[in-house]
Design a protein around this nucleic acid. Sequence first.
RNA 1: GGUCCCAUCGUCUAGAGGCCUAGGACACCGGUCUCUCAAGCCGGAAACACGGGUUCGAAUCCCGUUGGGACCGCCA
Length: 466
Amino acid sequence: MVRTRFAPSPTGYLHIGGARTALFNWLFARHHRGSFILRIEDTDVERSTEEATQAILDAMEWLGLKWDEGPYFQSKRLHLYREHVERLLERGLAYRCYCTPEELEERRKRALEEGRPPRYDGRCRDRKDRPDLPHAIRFKVPRNGATIVRDLIKGTVSFDHSEIEDLVILRSDGMPTYNLCVVVDDALMGITHVIRGDDHLNNTPKQILLYEAFGYKVPEFAHVPMILGPDRTRLSKRHGATSVTAYREMGYLPEAMVNYLVRLGWSYGDQEIFSVEELIEKFSLENVGRSSAVFNPEKLLWLNAHYIKEKDDRELAELLVPFLEKRGYRARGDERLPKIVKTLKERAKTLEEMAEMADFYFAEEIEYDEEARKRFLTPERLEIFDALIEGLSGLEEFTEKGIEGVFRRIMEEKGLKLGKLAQPVRVAVTGRTVSPGIFETLEALGKERTIKRLKKARDLLKEATL
RNA sequence: GGUCCCAUCGUCUAGAGGCCUAGGACACCGGUCUCUCAAGCCGGAAACACGGGUUCGAAUCCCGUUGGGACCGCCA
């Protein structure tokens, strides 16, 4: 039975990298019909917040990454970690360290300056007295030998014990540290596969040593490469929008985000588009690459446009409503919505953009683009507008087909090409020279508003003629 | 500085020694369609970091160089 987990620390929002790690874990578990566990690593009391926890949960739900167990909170499992530290202490595998953080910081700084490795020197390791002073607990890393990490992605990696310092496992305030908690939890929770960012590869030998000290079975490890910013350094806030939530707010669809994220580091031949079902079927660690990947917002945008085009009009309309409301329109319940969405879905790359393009459908009064007005709302079009208003008013069914019929008839009568009709009407109705096809636009806008806007334009022309 | 990881078009990647004159996708450029803009379709430019081996044969295997990244916390 495969068991994987995602273990974020609630110190900020779910970012792109974390989301991909979660996705890989989720897909791996689903693929093997195993369990996916969510665990919140909140042992850093200073930086952990409830808001961050909630934001992470929300983002995961939005992405569709449902967890089978949890969320577990490490802050509620402190007794387990302390008990484990006690076990190590009793067996002489851990010891009290009385060095203060300030002293350690000072020594680290000096070591770096002098070009020595900034590692703890183990000075408290063999200390015999046990004064009643503040102290941390450190794990005794064997002085000799090496630990081999067999990684499903990176292969076999060897770490010499001389390179590993005696790590702190219990802080002087009694709180356990990451390397201890992660081992205790993964062991107790029966995690079979630890899939995480390769920034953890260097921690892995320490953790293996802890597993062994406790006599626990070591899980399989899979370290996935980092996601980088355009400057090829680890993706972070200074690279712009990196939180999953930010993309949701910009009008991205979760399908696009999932599809984009999975292809960052994983591939399946030449295929680019994957449904979630397909991913569950096809995902495997063997097809995860070993090199880091640069985050490319343009491709994500393309995928988003793709999924917008594919989505059902009614569902899309539903998703668009909040974005319209943000622009001040009471769009909910407007029965034109699916039709409106239909005219826009081929053109908009995000919901935000779609709402922007939909402006003219909802605005009480439209504003003419000055250039467009000058060019297309000219006195000699007066005739056209009169004919159009008459023809369209007479339509029983205000449909694309009927509208086109009226246009064609007028074109024939006046001997005009469609462009001569469509552009002035477009400007009259949308205020701009760019819009979806004119017939579908008019139908979606509705008869009443169409006629009203045409009349307004006509009156403007009349005034100009006088 | 030490340790570890990585290296195919600008970017994401295919490639498991001959199928490679290196394939796909995004972005870019051109054409086509056309009521505008998109979308779609067709086409174009664009890469095996370098040097040594191994082999009849290397993008693929080995070594080195160079370059990039991560880690070296009483953060996770």
